[in-house]
């Protein structure tokens, strides 16, 4: 365990760009699908059912790949990059909404910036270059590896982040009672733990075998949200 590094990365104050993203909550609020704490609970259950397994599994798989390479790099830099290219392509295929791809990459780029400066490492250079940045789960996987965390811890931070982003956005957008929102997160902790454990357990599998859950309404909402003239959150 590297408890303090783990807490640093899981902390919502870690400067990795997350505060500007509501992970679909702003769109759901505008559409009247989330208006109160019960609505937020349903929304977060949804996030746990489709987004968390994919995000956590790709984070854990990237972490495992990066950690192994960190211990035993191949001789050529390009060989080291191949598994990350595959992870990137598989996650891209699972992210059908262009708006959500962009949101993921922008958050990945922000996390990469913070990670590089917080835990310097050669591992970051293995991530595929993309003008908008690496996908967030890939950036998180490499950052957690650079920070010396375990695969389980990396999956846990990923699954937890899937919940805390929209929960924090709900406090800001709906003025929900922050104590009740924390109580809700505590009640979802068991489910979040299970998802993280499952994700860590499949981290060794080849990328195409990783979870591929999808939520068409979330994709459609994200595309509509991206066209709004006036919005508070980037996604």
């Amino acid at each position: 365990m590297h408890s303090t590094a783990y807490l640093l990365l899981a902390d919502g104050r870690f400067p990795s760009g997350g505060h500007a993203h509501s992970s679909g909550l702003e769109a759901a609020v505008a559409a009247g699908r989330v208006t109160d704490l019960a609505g937020l609970e349903s929304f977060l259950h949804g996030r746990l059912s489709y987004a968390a397994p994919v995000t956590a599994a790709f984070t854990a798989a990237t972490h495992l790949t990066a950690s192994r390479l960190g211990r035993a790099p191949s001789h050529t830099h390009s060989d080291n990059k191949v598994p990350f290219l595959t992870l990137d392509a598989e996650l891209e295929a699972r992210t059908v909404s262009p708006a959500l791809r962009l949101a993921s990459r922008r958050q990945g780029r922000a996390l990469l910036r913070a990670g590089r400066l917080t835990w310097p490492s050669e591992l970051y250079a293995y991530l595929p270059k993309h003008p908008d940045g690496p996908h967030q789960p890939l950036a998180l996987g490499v950052t957690t590896a650079a920070a010396g965390l375990s695969t389980e811890e990396s999956a846990h931070i990923a699954a937890y982040g899937v919940l805390t982003g929209p929960a924090s956005a709900a406090v800001r957008l709906l003025g929900l009672d922050p104590y009740q929102v924390q109580n809700l997160l505590a009640r979802l902790a068991g489910a979040c733990d299970e998802i993280a454990a499952s994700a860590a357990a499949v981290a060794h599998k080849s990328p195409e075998e990783l979870p591929a859950h999808a939520a068409p309404l979330a994709d459609i909402s994200a595309e509509i949200h991206a066209t709004w003239e006036v919005r508070l959150f980037a996604s």
């Binding site: 400067p15 990795s16 760009g17 505060h19 922008r106 922000a110 910036r113």
Partner: peptide
């Protein structure tokens, strides 16, 4: 101030 990443980008 606290999370300047989007501005730096």
């Amino acid at each position: 101030r606290d999370d300047i990443s989007a501005n730096l980008d």
